[in-house]
Simulated assay, not measured.
Amino acid sequence: MDHHEPYPIGDAARRSGLSVSAVRFYADAGIVEPTCLSEAGHRLYDIDAIARLELVRTLRELDTDLGEIRRLLEGGTTLHDLLTTHLEVVERRERTLRARRAVLRTLIRQGATAERVALMHRLVSMTDEERERVVDEFWNDVGADLDVPDGFVDRLREMRPVLPADPTAAQLEAWIELADLVRDPDFRDAVRIYLRDTYSTDPGRSIASASFQEFIYGSGTALIKELLAVHRAGESPRSPRAQEVVVRFMEAAVGLSDTPLTDELRDRMSEGYRLIPELEREMAEEDAASEDPVHDDTHGRYLSLVAIINGTGPEEDTMPYEWISEAMRAPTDHE
């Protein structure tokens, strides 16, 4: 067969990946008409027509409607513009389906009622302004007349969810759970009781002070990151670099109470850091046995959901408490 001659409809269908009936349909619809007719009246297609049929097949597999395809083939738009517009449509549809999936998963997990279906749909459809208002109402209620240091509740409300423009299913599910929780009066009461019991008296009150909070979330965090970088570099905790950073950290910490950094205090801080894993286990056991509101079920749950929504989960590195404890230990005469 001369490849420059038009092909019969069967060959055109095979080369374009369409069925013969589909090729006929697109011809009858005026999308890709045959190049010419044979003497017997059969439809014939040249290479250009077959290429258009192949493009039509590809675009239809991408769910592009016939009107858009006709505009493209008639020169009413470019392929780039058509694909760009279609990508926007597909991405919007994907976001919608992702939101629906998050709602359905939550409903199945929690148990579905007509009221819950309506609520879940409303939560996932909120605008940025509505989400901000829900979180503000939560903290306004929780912080009302709470006997904690000035500015502490404002510091807590800074940790708030910011749902990205293109959230994952996990982020949507976390937002649905968080939005449901912060609107729940029982959860608000539990958070308020936990914060009151933890931070209205010492030592919690001192931890909630402005200076201590600034150290925890500001200079202290920066110094711990420096110390972890030294650890990851493989240096000894007694190396000059490790000692320089750890001393700055301890001086900043004890400076909160205007206490001088003595060798005795260094050793106490060293022992305290060494015992942190054991203390954390004991606290977890106490929380599990407690009938009062505890961190993981109240403010801790709020923070963990915010971290998922914001994509700022806990760092993978395990805190090297033993290494830090050794770095904090006061130097001996032979060192």
Rank of each mutant, 00 (worst) to 15 (best):
D154E: 13
R281L: 15
R232E: 14
S270W: 00
G30V: 03
V153E: 08
I308N: 01
A118F: 10
F152Y: 04
T35C: 13
V103A: 10
I308S: 06
T332A: 14
H86T: 14
R274H: 10
G10H: 09
S239P: 07
I108E: 15
L163C: 02
P34W: 01
Y217V: 05
A307P: 11
V246F: 10
I31G: 08
E291F: 07
M328R: 06
M328Q: 14
A307E: 08
T35D: 06
A330N: 03
R15E: 12
R100A: 09
L72A: 06
L104G: 02
I224P: 07
G311C: 04
S38R: 09
R93C: 06
D141F: 05
R95G: 12
R329A: 15
E33A: 15
T221K: 12
A288H: 08
R95S: 10
E74G: 11
T96F: 08
D333L: 10
R160P: 01
D136S: 09
E68W: 08
E54T: 15
T318K: 03
L66S: 09
S236G: 05
C36G: 09
A307L: 01
D202H: 11
M126V: 04
T262H: 02
L256G: 06
H299R: 12
A179P: 00
R266W: 09
R192D: 05
V23D: 02
R155E: 06
C36H: 03
P167R: 02
D267V: 01
V32M: 09
R24A: 02
S325N: 06
D48S: 14
A22G: 04
Y302H: 06
V254I: 08
A284E: 11
W139T: 04
I207A: 05
D189Y: 13
A253K: 11
A327R: 01
L66H: 09
E264T: 12
L104C: 10
F187C: 03
Y217S: 12
H3K: 13
F249G: 05
E264I: 10
T332Q: 12
Y194L: 09
T84S: 12
P161T: 00
G10Y: 03
L305V: 04
P237M: 00
V245W: 01
Y194V: 04
G67A: 12
T77A: 05
G300T: 08
L73M: 11
E235R: 14
R268G: 09
E177G: 05
R101S: 12
F138K: 04
L163P: 00
A22R: 07
E74T: 14
D81R: 15
A208E: 00
A174P: 03
L261N: 01
F187D: 00
A284R: 06
L303D: 13
Q213M: 15
G17R: 01
A112S: 15
T113E: 07
A165F: 05
D317A: 09
V247A: 11
A170T: 14
V148P: 02
R52A: 11
T58D: 14
P34M: 07
P34Y: 07
R157Y: 07
E235S: 12
I9S: 01
W323H: 11
